[in-house]
């Protein structure tokens, strides 16, 4: 009995030591994954995910402490890339709920204060001081920063209108007949 306990304890200790040493000696410096994830993320540092910028989000994703659906501006494309990178299942149902949006300027109440223009991470807002601003749709990631700083609530995120060009068939409804 005693011999068994002792021998197993020694065995355990020895193997633990070995693993500990191995972990130290063979440790990989830094995490290349973080950099790769950061490449996937939009890089607009909008902070909608709740992390300090895309680097913070990348770190959290690499740790596994954040869901891959964390990035609203990235949309489903980013979720799928992240899923492939991290080898996890992409649950797109969470993402689909947030309709793709872009910022839009209500021209009647824009005062041309240029605040939105200064915070836009992708230079998607055109205009100058005392001039009407307008949004370049193709460059807008719907990060919402402009919405926050607008003093007159004239710039707002609006769902992208569906056009004949962008429309496509929805998934057939899933009905289980049996």
């Amino acid at each position: 009995m005693l011999i068994a306990i002792i021998s197993l304890s020694i065995l355990g200790a020895a193997l633990g030591l070995f693993l500990g040493v191995a972990a130290r000696r063979l440790a990989v410096e830094g995490n290349p994954l973080v950099a790769e994830i950061q490449d996937i993320l939009p890089g607009s540092q909008c902070g909608q995910c709740g992390y300090p910028g895309c680097a913070g989000a990348a770190q959290a994703l690499a740790d596994g402490s954040a869901p891959i659906t964390l990035c609203p501006p990235g949309g489903r494309a980013v979720v799928q890339l992240l899923a492939a990178k991290l080898g996890v299942e992409a649950n797109l149902s969470d993402v689909e709920e947030s309709v793709p949006k872009v910022a839009e300027v209500k021209e009647e109440i824009c005062i041309g204060c240029t605040r939105c223009f200064k915070v836009c991470p992708t230079d998607a807002i055109m205009g100058a001081a005392q001039q009407l601003h307008s949004v370049f749709r193709e460059a807008c990631t719907a990060c919402g920063k402009c919405e926050e700083v607008c003093p007159t609530e004239s710039i707002k995120l609006q769902p992208i209108p569906v056009t004949v060009q962008s429309w496509y068939w929805q998934k057939p409804p899933m009905k289980e007949a049996a």
Partner: peptide
């Protein structure tokens, strides 16, 4: 047809993503 449409939309999203990322990098 749903899948083809969805893939095309994803493709468009990816292109936009790349374009906006370049813009964001340029701005930074």
């Amino acid at each position: 047809n749903y899948a083809k449409g969805d893939l095309a939309a994803q493709e468009r999203g990816k292109l936009k993503q790349e374009a906006t990322k370049k813009l964001a990098d340029a701005r930074n």
